[in-house]
Design a protein around this nucleic acid. Structure first.
Length: 600
RNA sequence: GGGGUUGUAGUUAAGUCGGUUAUAACGCCGGCCUGUCACGCCGGAGGCCGCGGGUUCGAGUCCCGUCGACCCCGCCA
């Protein structure tokens, strides 16, 4: 056993000054014969008395450390102190394994220890990197630093890093300049609920955290920056979902003198930069469909285009139905729409169909009509309500063949479209209908305004700075506001909206008309957005842009369906950080200084 | 704001019709073991059954309330 002249046993003062020479995961057969120093976590300790193994883990992988009769007795003593997840330093010689492990990249070799030193101990842990996935998410969030030891989560963080670097490289090469914008902002009335920050020096006044840097990036265009981007945190105080966090990251982009195509091409460049970097993928031409087409084919404006199963409109075919269910559903502008789940009739038990019905009811549908196509025609609730002739036309319209399951909804558009549309997306996942791993599309020509029933007014579908399409601008100020289309576009991947943008209004007169349409008075507009309106009057160039939901993009790149998996320190659905314990009460003196009183 | 699922040892779970001392696996601690890689074997410690109240002779179990986690609707320009 050759000993490295620099390395003695444990307690050797020389050892304390030795830095690691290699990373665990990089060791291969080519390193055999070399003396190495490794530092990392003891993933497992297997002691057989005469021979013992420690699996050492660092970010780069696992390496097996062996202690046997070839080692000095002091090494064995040191080994006895090592427990699972202790941080240790091991020096030794890389040797070929007697029993190689083909499941491990480093499985051909092991490190025969000449010294083991405990760098730090650990108290008993609720779970380890190996057992984390067996723990509940609540436990894992509380002990996030342990969960983050998992190679999967480390991979996600690295994917995130690589993706943002690739985006920066691409945008830099396209002459975009990354400019930071304020986190302490002015509150604006439109949009999501603001996170507010009290001002100490201005009693009773508040900053708002940005929901997005929207106004600042437009003002940078007025300033002549021409091409801006920023990878930036945004904050929205709304209830959360699996793909939504209260603070999230956008790739924010703005361009002067663009057409819609200019912005979409840049966005596609960003998309390709990410997917090439992480997935090694080449993305072909990305199809564009209008909002109206998206609703027509998929029921929703963020369609999962990895599979077909388009929705079909059946309203005309059943318009004269004797069924009160159908005539009732069609009253007041209701529609009848359906889809064909090919070959799914047999698998669709009552329990399964009830599940589908419960699913669509969440979106306001009264129920779900179903029909199974058999050799002798249609059976099921659909067949009961329709005449034989009607049934035949519906089956034909949906392309029904024996063995198919037809799902049909009747009622208000606002219920049937999302109900069937979301059910379609869910069935795509559940029945593995996807024909591609990734499928992208653009959705454009959105309506500019959406009628809000609660407040009885028009609200901006995108945001209030979105330009109406040039050919629709003349409708501003008329009673046909609902027909105005916006110069807005969303980039959709696998049913997720991953980017959204628009051409902005650069004419303060048009901007005023839009504010009027939104019921925002001149005075209020001046009070809330005066600085933007002022900028628009001072030589604003035509401009437009887009913002990517970066967390969602990384989620897709990483192949996970939970946004918390790609955020180092995420919050729960109640917007709490289980590890840090935020939010939390503060000292009353702190509140007093901020002129804030606790009413709760 | 609403709906669904959920909370028992460090962790993950079982716990019947309300009934004796609340089980198991993994982990932890001690011992044995010369080629493991989810090592194996022997022994041991470990409990605010989320929290509060109620019903009952008796509550992990039934009732009411409350807190948290996850998923969904509303909401999220």
């Amino acid at each position: 056993m050759s000993a490295c002249p620099l390395l003695g046993g444990p307690g050797d003062p020389m050892l304390k000054n030795v830095r690691r020479t290699h990373r665990c995961g990089e060791l291969r057969a080519e390193h055999i014969g070399q003396h190495v120093v490794l530092q990392g976590w003891a993933q497992s300790v297997r002691d057989f008395g005469g021979v013992a193994f420690v699996v050492l883990r660092d970010r780069y992988g696992l390496a097996q450390v062996t202690v046997d009769e070839r080692c000095a007795p002091s090494v064995k003593d040191e080994l006895g102190l090592v427990r699972s997840e202790y941080v240790i330093e091991v020096s030794g010689e890389v040797v070929a394994r007697a029993n190689p492990n083909p499941n491990l990249p480093t499985g051909a070799i092991e490190v025969l220890a000449s010294g083991i030193r405990v760098l730090n101990k650990t108290e008993p842990l609720p779970f380890t990197a190996e057992t984390a996935m067996q723990a509940q998410e609540e436990t894992r969030l509380k002990w996030r630093f342990l969960d983050l030891r998992r190679p999967t989560l480390q991979r996600h963080l690295i994917i995130r890093h690589k993706a943002s670097q690739a985006v920066r490289r691409f945008l830099d090469s396209e002459d975009f300049v990354e400019v930071e914008t304020p986190i302490l902002n002015k509150s604006t009335p439109e949009g999501a609920r603001d996170y507010l920050v009290p001002s100490r020096v201005h009693p009773g006044q508040w900053y708002a955290l940005p929901q997005s840097p929207q106004i600042f990036k437009q003002i940078l265009m007025v300033a002549g920056m021409d091409r801006y981007f920023q990878i930036v945190k945004c904050f929205r105080d709304e209830d959360l979902r699996a793909d939504r966090q209260p603070e999230f990251t956008q790739i924010d982009i703005e361009i002067s003198f663009p057409t819609e195509d200019t912005v979409m091409e840049v966005a596609e460049g960003v998309l390709r930069a990410m997917f090439t970097e992480i997935r090694g993928m080449t993305i072909g031409e990305i199809p564009r469909l209008t909002y109206a087409d998206a609703i027509d084919r998929y029921g929703i404006d963020s369609p999962d285009t990895r599979f077909e199963m388009h929705l079909k409109t059946l309203t005309d075919l059943v318009a004269n139905s004797a069924s009160t269910v159908i005539s009732g559903g069609l009253a007041n502008g209701g529609v009848c729409r359906g889809m064909n789940v090919k070959g799914h009739a047999e698998a669709a038990s009552n329990k399964v169909l009830n599940g589908y019905t419960d699913f669509v009811k969440r979106y306001g549908m009264g129920g779900l009509l179903w029909g199974k196509v058999g050799a002798e025609g249609l059976t099921g609730s659909l067949a009961k309500l329709l005449s034989a002739e009607e049934a035949a036309t519906v089956v034909a319209a949906l392309g029904g063949a024996p063995g198919d399951l037809l799902l049909v909804g009747v009622g208000a558009k606002s219920a049937v479209n999302p109900g069937l549309g979301r059910l379609r997306a869910q069935l795509g996942r559940d029945l593995s209908l996807h024909q591609h791993e990734f499928s992208f599309c653009w959705v454009n020509d959105f309506p500019a305004f959406d009628w809000d029933k609660d407040s009885q007014r028009w609200v901006a579908m995108h945001h209030p700075f979105t330009s109406p399409k040039a050919e629709d601008i003349h409708l501003l100020g008329t009673d046909r506001a609902g027909e105005i289309r916006a110069s807005a576009y969303d980039l959709v991947c696998n049913g997720y909206e991953i980017a959204g943008g628009s051409i902005r209004i650069h004419d303060s007169a048009v901007q005023s008309k839009v504010f009027t349409a939104l019921g925002i008075g001149e005075e209020e507009a001046e009070e809330r957005f005066g600085f933007l309106l002022s900028a628009l009057r001072c030589g604003a160039p035509p401009h437009g842009g887009i913002a990517f939901g970066f967390d969602r993009s990384v989620m897709l790149l990483a192949g996970t369906e939970n946004i918390r998996d790609v955020i180092a320190f995420p919050k729960t659905t109640k917007a709490q950080d289980m590890m840090a314990g935020s939010p939390s009460p503060v000292d009353p003196a702190q509140l007093a200084e901020l002129h804030v009183k606790n009413l709760g």
